[in-house]
Design a binder for these strands. Structure first.
Length: 210
DNA sequence: ACAATGATAGTT
DNA sequence: ACTATCATTGTA
């Protein structure tokens, strides 16, 4: 079970068993990619040295024709990456102080993406605030918090998920059992709020909200 | 319940 | 130019 602590430790000890997620895998509807990304690994080569591996615990899908999707009203400077090729990032600033990280889905020209909402980190980034150090399992519990922890901002907008860019994805090493994958409604939106396009690992301590 | 904080989209 | 809104978070 992926949420089991021993499984996480096994993944950390066997990094050579993993396989990078490539753009073609992301070339399908965000509503399919979002649940499939649960249990996959996000890797971040921090600018100042350490490599951080993180299990994806929580995602949300944003689709074409979805009023809650940033791409709903067409292409703009901010959301251009959503219309770009799959397997790239879309990073935006929200509420003037937090960044959010997405995986772009579907072919170029189609505006859709998966928001990464929570991660379980294998190691803690340097320079934690006392607040963060107190609850290490919550350091990446939320889309704004995970970008702060991994030093992700708009300079990483529109880049290919690839080691060369210091940011990439790897496939699951362990399957996620059906009962552990919870599907529910998205958080923090007012439009299309009834769509059940959020997924998370049941009972995982890094889930942003119940 | 609400303030922090800035970019964006829609309206004068 | 002005204003409401926003895929959030921490504090009260």
């Amino acid at each position: 079970m992926v949420s089991d602590k021993n499984s996480v430790e096994r993944i950390i000890k066997n990094p050579n068993l993993t396989q990078r997620i490539e753009p073609d895998w992301c070339d399908r509807p965000s509503i399919e990619v979002a649940p499939d990304l649960i249990g996959c690994t996000l890797l971040r080569q921090m600018p100042d040295g350490p490599l951080i591996r993180a299990l994806i615990i929580e995602t949300e899908a944003y689709a074409p024709g979805d009023p809650a999707c940033h791409a709903y009203r067409g292409k703009s400077k901010r959301n251009a990456a959503m219309f770009g090729p799959p397997g790239h990032s879309y990073v935006y600033l929200i509420y003037g102080m937090y960044h959010c990280l997405n995986v772009v889905t579907e072919a170029e020209g189609i505006g859709s993406a998966v928001l990464i909402r929570a991660l379980s980190l294998d190691s803690l980034p340097p320079q934690l605030t006392p607040e963060q150090a107190k609850k290490p399992h919550r350091v990446a519990a939320g889309p704004g918090k995970l970008c702060r922890a991994l030093e992700i901002d708009r300079s990483l907008d529109g880049v290919l998920y690839h080691p060369a860019n210091g940011l990439w994805l790897e496939h699951r090493e362990h399957s996620v059992s059906e009962p552990d994958l919870v599907q529910t409604t998205r958080i923090g939106i007012t439009k299309a709020a009834e769509q059940p396009w959020r997924w998370y690992l049941r009972d995982h301590p890094a889930v942003s909200k119940k």
